[in-house]
């Protein structure tokens, strides 16, 4: 017992020493190279524009901090919408692979294998190219529904009291989704759904045949058996790996930088480049992703505890 304490104290001291070495060394190196440090730059004027600012009012005259908040908002937006659609599509894919329809099973299997085995970055470039190169310019925009315009400037659709209209270079009015957002969303959703599909399939298959038979034998219909017997048991197995997929989706959203969606990483990269404060910029990115991931984790653990069998969680 005593040796155990000694060992742990030693480990803590060693970890502290390593940390101190890195911090003091960094400060020293920054000083000798006369590179500015600290977070004071956050309050300086950013001076660059951002393509999509979502719900946050922003202009080049605002601070770097506000620019980063816009980036954070964009990351949240893509992650939240992505998680919802990936779950829906993933569940459909998973159930399709279990369907009695032969063609549906094969199609779903082909989808999963194709999507899972191509790097996500490549898929993002693919979707971005499809959208930006195949859609016409704003002047020749497709008009599938009244007030809805589809062009390489994005999808414009009407809001109550405001319809998009072509004016000069672009549409004005209504609401819009940019090609970058659309490509990123489609890429993330289709990619993550392939993994979620497999998780759902594994979860459902893990419920013993006997359980289903027992449910039918007490007179439950197929739908009721699924709802009251199969899914509650499957969920216990689905939730933990599903959490990982949600975390992956949130983290993968940082690939946005490659196709020009202004997410947190993109804005932080620009910021660290304009200010030269790489260490602070990277620290902000790491801190934010850590916070997002731990929050998703905490939420999913709470949910997992609710669906778990009583007494099985320690």
């Amino acid at each position: 017992m005593k040796r155990g304490w000694l060992f742990q104290a030693g480990l803590l001291a060693a970890a502290g020493l390593v940390l101190w070495f890195f911090i003091s060394n960094t400060t020293h190196n920054l000083e000798t190279r006369k590179i500015a440090s600290g977070f004071g730059f956050l309050w300086r004027e950013a001076g660059f524009e951002i393509g999509e600012t979502g719900a946050i009012a922003y202009s080049a005259a605002d601070s770097y901090l506000r620019a980063l908040v816009v980036g954070l908002w964009n990351t949240f937006r893509i992650a939240a919408i992505g998680v919802v659609f990936a779950t829906l599509l993933g569940t459909l894919i998973g159930l399709a692979r279990l369907s009695p329809n032969w063609l549906l099973v094969k199609l779903a299997a082909a989808y999963v294998e194709a999507i899972r085995n191509v790097p996500l970055l490549v898929q993002l470039f693919f979707w971005y190219a499809i959208i930006s190169e195949n859609l016409p310019g704003p002047a020749e925009a497709l008009n599938p529904l009244p007030g809805v315009y589809l062009s390489n400037r994005g999808i414009f659709f009407p809001l109550p009291g405001s319809t998009p209209e072509l004016s000069g270079f672009n549409f004005i009015g209504g609401a819009s989704l940019s090609p970058e957002f659309a490509a990123l969303l489609v890429g993330l959703v289709t990619y993550t759904a392939a993994f979620i599909g497999e998780i759902v399939r594994a979860g459902v298959l893990s419920v013993g045949r006997g359980q289903v038979d027992a449910a039918y034998s007490i007179g439950l219909a197929r739908r009721a058996a699924l709802r009251f017997v199969v899914l509650p048991q499957a969920l216990r197995l689905i939730v933990p790996p599903l959490t990982s997929q949600y975390l992956n989706l949130a983290k993968n959203s940082s690939l946005a930088v490659a196709i020009g969606y202004p997410d947190l990483v993109s804005i932080a990269n620009t910021t660290l480049n304009q200010t030269g404060q790489a260490i602070e910029g990277i620290a902000i990115i790491m801190g934010v992703y850590l916070t997002i991931s731990l929050s998703i984790s905490a939420l999913m653990n709470w949910y997992n505890r609710r669906v778990a069998l009583k007494g099985t969680l320690r």
Binding site: F48, E49, I50, G51, F125, N170, A258, G260, N269, T270
Partner: peptide, 12 residues
Amino acid sequence: FKPVVIEKLEEV
């Protein structure tokens, strides 16, 4: 204006 900001020269 609306900026489209992409790092790689090829992509931009």
